[in-house]
Amino acid sequence: MLREDHDLAFMLRYENVAWYENGKVKILDRRVYPTEVKFVICNTHVEVAHAIADMVTQSAGPYTAAGMGMALAAYECKNMGKEDMWKYLEKAAYTLAHARPTTVNRMSQVTRGCLRAAKTAIEEDGKVDEEIFEHTIDSLNRRYSTMEKVAEYLVDMFPHKGNVMTQCFGETIVGMMLRVTKKRNKEIKLFVPETRPYLQGARLTASVAYDQGFDTTVITDNMPAYTMVTKKIDLFTSAADAICMDGHVVNKIGTYQIAIVAKYHGIPYFVTGIPDAEYETISEVTIEERNPNLVLEARGKKNTMEGVKGYYPSFDITPPSLVSGVVTDRGIFVPYDLHRYFEDETGEFY
C-alpha cells in the first residue's frame, strides 16, 4: 500500500492517528501523549464520535477518525438489507460529522466521501467496511500530499537558520513543513506556545518537531510577545479549523492574540490550509465553547478555589488585517482574495 506518511513522526503515521481493523477503531489518546502512549478502542461509530467530542484526537485527527468510524459503522450494519444499511450509514455520517460544531463542514466532506465509497460497494455487493477503509487511506494520501504542496510554499517563507513560532497543533502541515525543510537542508528553530488547557503545542507539536529532528523550545501562552523580541522570531504560522472566504481565520484560542503581537512587531503571520467555500463570511461559523472547568485545572489537577468560574471558547477569530497570507496548495493568497483559489476546479481531499 503506497502511503504518504513516510519519514514523519510517530503520531502522524496513519495507524497511530486512528485505525479500523477487525470491527474496532483504535485512536491514539492525544490527551495523554507523549507521557503515555495509549489507544482508545471504539466498538461502535457512536463511540468514535464521543472520542472526537472528548478530544481523544484533535487537529486533523478527527478527519481520520471519522473515516475509520464510517468503516466501523459499515461493519455494524453488514447483515442488514441494502436499504436499511444505507439509512444506517447516512445516520452514522451525520453523527460523526457533527461530533464537534465548528468543523461540521470539513467533517461532512469526510463522511460524504465515505458514503460515495459505500454506495459503490453496496451496488457491487462488495465488502462495504473494506471499501470505506480503502477510501479513507486514499483520502489520507491525498490530504498528506496536498499539505506537502502547501508546505513547499510555506517553507519558501522560512529564512535559513530562521526562528519560527507555531500555535496549537497543525497536524499534517507541521509534519510536512518539517519534512520539506529537512529535504531542502534548511535549518530552523521552533518556538512552540504550550496551548492551554489541553497543551497541544507542548505535547503534540513539540513532540512531532523533536521526533523529526528539529531544535524545539516550548514557551507558555503568555510568553509570545517577549519571545518574539528576545529570540528574534522571523515568522509566525498556524493551521486553521476554518478559513472563511472573507479572510477571517478560525483557529485554536490564542491565535488571535499572537497575530496581534506579530503585527505589532512586524513579523509575518502565514496561515495554512484550504479556504472553506461553505463559509462565505465569519458569521456562518459556530465557535465551540467547551467545559469551563477545563481552564480551572491542568491535566486533571484543579488549580482554583471552589466557586471560581472558568470560560473556555475553543477557538478564536483572527481578522484578515492580521494575516500576511493564506498558504494553500496553489500558492499564497492575500486573505481578501480567496475566491481566486477556486477559479480552477478543485475536489475535496478529505
Score class of each variant (00 low, 15 high):
K252G: 12
L322R: 00
K119D: 15
T220P: 02
K309P: 09
E289V: 12
Y144W: 09
G69Q: 01
P292M: 10
T44E: 00
H45N: 06
P159E: 10
P159T: 05
Q257E: 12
D337N: 14
N105T: 13
I122L: 15
M107A: 07
L154P: 02
F270H: 11
Y350R: 02
G247C: 07
A225S: 12
S314Q: 09
T205N: 07
T44S: 14
R203S: 06
P193D: 03
N79V: 04
M147N: 15
Q58G: 07
A239R: 01
L204S: 02
V218L: 10
S207N: 11
A259M: 05
I317T: 14
L296P: 01
E131R: 04
V250T: 00
G113M: 14
T120Q: 13
D344E: 13
E134T: 07
V285W: 02
F236W: 08
L235H: 03
D337H: 08
D54A: 14
M147W: 12
P193L: 01
W19R: 04
T230P: 01
G81Y: 03
M305T: 03
V295G: 07
R100V: 14
V334Y: 12
F214Q: 06
A53C: 01
N79M: 05
R340Y: 03
P275D: 10
E15V: 00
S139K: 13
N293V: 08
F10W: 10
E83A: 15
I122G: 13
E345C: 06
A262T: 00
G126Y: 10
W19D: 05
S321K: 06
K87P: 13
Y153A: 11
Y94A: 14
N185W: 06
Y341F: 15
K263H: 12
P268T: 03
D337Q: 09
V323D: 01
I132L: 13
Y336E: 15
N43R: 02
P101V: 03
S324K: 03
M1L: 08
E4V: 05
L12A: 08
I274K: 11
A121V: 10
M305D: 10
T237M: 14
D54H: 05
L199Q: 02
K26S: 13
A262N: 03
L178W: 11
V249I: 15
M1W: 09
L322E: 01
A202Q: 08
G325A: 10
W19Y: 14
I122V: 15
C77H: 01
K232C: 09
T220H: 02
K119V: 04
F10Q: 02
A117L: 13
M157I: 09
T57G: 00
G273V: 05
L294E: 11
F191Y: 15
K91H: 06
T216E: 02
T120Y: 13
M223L: 12
T172F: 11
I52E: 00
P193G: 03
G126C: 08
K78W: 07
A298F: 11
S283G: 05
R184S: 09
I282A: 07
D344I: 04
V56E: 00
H50K: 10
M70Q: 08
T166R: 00
G266Y: 06
